[in-house]
Design a protein around this nucleic acid. Sequence first.
DNA 1: CAAGCATACCTTGACAGTCTAGGTACATCC
DNA 2: GGATGTACCTAGACTGTCAAGGTATGCTTG
Lengths: 110, 110
Amino acid sequence: MTKPRTTFLQGTLDMLILKTLSWGARHGYAIARWLEETTNDALQIEEGSLYPALYRMERKGWIEAEWGVSELGKRIKLYSLTPLGRKQLRIEASQWAQFVDAVAAVMRTA
Amino acid sequence: MTKPRTTFLQGTLDMLILKTLSWGARHGYAIARWLEETTNDALQIEEGSLYPALYRMERKGWIEAEWGVSELGKRIKLYSLTPLGRKQLRIEASQWAQFVDAVAAVMRTA
DNA sequence: CAAGCATACCTTGACAGTCTAGGTACATCC
DNA sequence: GGATGTACCTAGACTGTCAAGGTATGCTTG
């Protein structure tokens, strides 16, 4: 079993975050934990990638943040999807599907 | 139909080139044309990405080059897979499959 | 009570890979 | 002779990731 390659993550992190938030608001740390859990740690979300991504996406108007408090009493920055973010998710999901198809077409050539 | 996103290409270009060469030697320009054709132009291979990639891969010992002449009388640099490259192709294909599965697990969550 | 661990946030600097936009050279076709 | 297609290459900008640091706090455990 080969180690997962994070190089592939390039460009998909935004989509994965958008998808995570499509189920409801979450804070950064929780987004990372959820993604890792959902993929059985096949994806590792580094904080140095995560937080800049969140900042980037907020600037683009895809998500918005609100400060709050977690169940454990920690201050958290709760992110939720904007309508624009929801639209962006649809776009990225479609592009991703297309790309995966294209790569599959190359890789399955017999 | 949304435009294909080249951002996703990050990290997969090497694999796609390796796969292309697994069918036999080809020169750079032909590799790009073949990939575009095979994917119905879903993938666009920019020369500014292609040639650096070929150089990189040659340095890593995955491919090797030989100068020749095309059917059209142009000088071409014919690349072929080394045993190391063949091994690398297997590794990358496996990592790619894993990554696609992981993303699928996130995206299909209902 | 102190130490360690998990939660939760953030930033800086290096690095890798892609893209844009150029360039060269030559052959063919109109 | 000019346009187009083949075929190669490169410099510089840019984007996104990663490694490695940092802060703060609450809970558990010895």
